[in-house]
Amino acid sequence: MKTFETYLQGLGLAASSIAQVQRSLVLCEQKTGVLESLTYQDLLVFVRYLQQSGSKPYTINRHLSSLKHYFSYLILQGFRSDNPAQNLRVKGGVVGLSFQGLDFAALEHLYGAYQGAAELKALLSLYIYQGVKTLEVRHIKVGDVDLTKGELSLRASGVGANQTGARCLALAPGQILLLHQLIGGRSANAGLFVVGDRYDALTQALFEEVRRLNPLIVNAHTIRRVVISHWLKSEDIRLVQHKAGHLRVKSTERYRVAHLEELQQEIARLHPLSD
């Protein structure tokens, strides 16, 4: 097995740089009590410590770069599936998230890395492959899923600016077996996910894990924006309008230009260290 030092040498790091990386790891472990199993929240605690100790943004980012190397090494060795330092940076004293890498490929990577309950993975799949809105998920019935045709029918929902139209969307191949297991022998009129008051608990559990795997993904709306942007790269805008459930094409057009800036603002607003 390749050692971490050998891994760093393979990246072309000088001996002095490797020593700095090792010092960063020791400091992080001292202040958080963990290293290999470090979570994103643990990492935020470490960054807070560095800020309160008077470290400059350059120094903090150097520590984060060291940790990024370490977690990349652990992923390569099969000890982790995520890198909590991947998109974290400090700019002007404020901790933020780099937007680079949040595209549809990142969503598919997230889907592959997600190891939660089958019901939660099925819910995540609808956000990623059909771009559904949270309100729409509440109204999906078992009978709306046609596994033979590989289709999902969505009802019109919402009011005003949040209204979406009815539509029929193709299921991705990997969703068929997952949804088949979820449906079982339940009645066509039963809710696909909603049983009593379980829906809020389901979504909370799902996105707690999602944010651990990729902190850039704030909520279901973040995923939907990335999905619609991805569709617009290769499909006619009228088709994307239908798939997104937009009643007006102007609602779809704004994703071509404004969605990246809006996502940046949303992440900055909702990220726990953006204040």
Rank of each mutant, 00 (worst) to 15 (best):
G10C: 07
A14N: 03
S17A: 03
I18E: 13
A19N: 12
L27A: 02
T32Y: 01
T32M: 03
G33E: 01
V34W: 01
L35M: 05
Y40A: 08
Y40M: 05
Q41D: 05
L44I: 06
Q52K: 13
P57G: 00
T59D: 02
R62N: 11
S66P: 07
S72N: 15
L76E: 14
G78V: 08
R80Y: 13
S81E: 14
V90P: 11
G92C: 04
G92N: 13
G93A: 06
L97M: 07
S98K: 14
F104L: 11
A105Q: 12
A117Y: 05
A118E: 13
E119I: 04
L120E: 15
A122S: 15
L124W: 13
L126T: 03
G143C: 07
G143Q: 15
L147N: 05
K149T: 03
G150W: 14
G158S: 03
G165D: 09
G165K: 11
G165I: 12
A166S: 14
I176P: 06
I176E: 10
L179E: 12
H180A: 15
I183H: 06
S187R: 07
A188L: 14
A190T: 11
L192R: 00
L192E: 03
V195Q: 14
D197P: 06
D197W: 07
E209G: 08
R212G: 04
L216C: 11
L216S: 01
V226T: 07
S229R: 14
R238D: 04
L239E: 15
H242R: 15
G245M: 06
V249Y: 09
P272A: 00
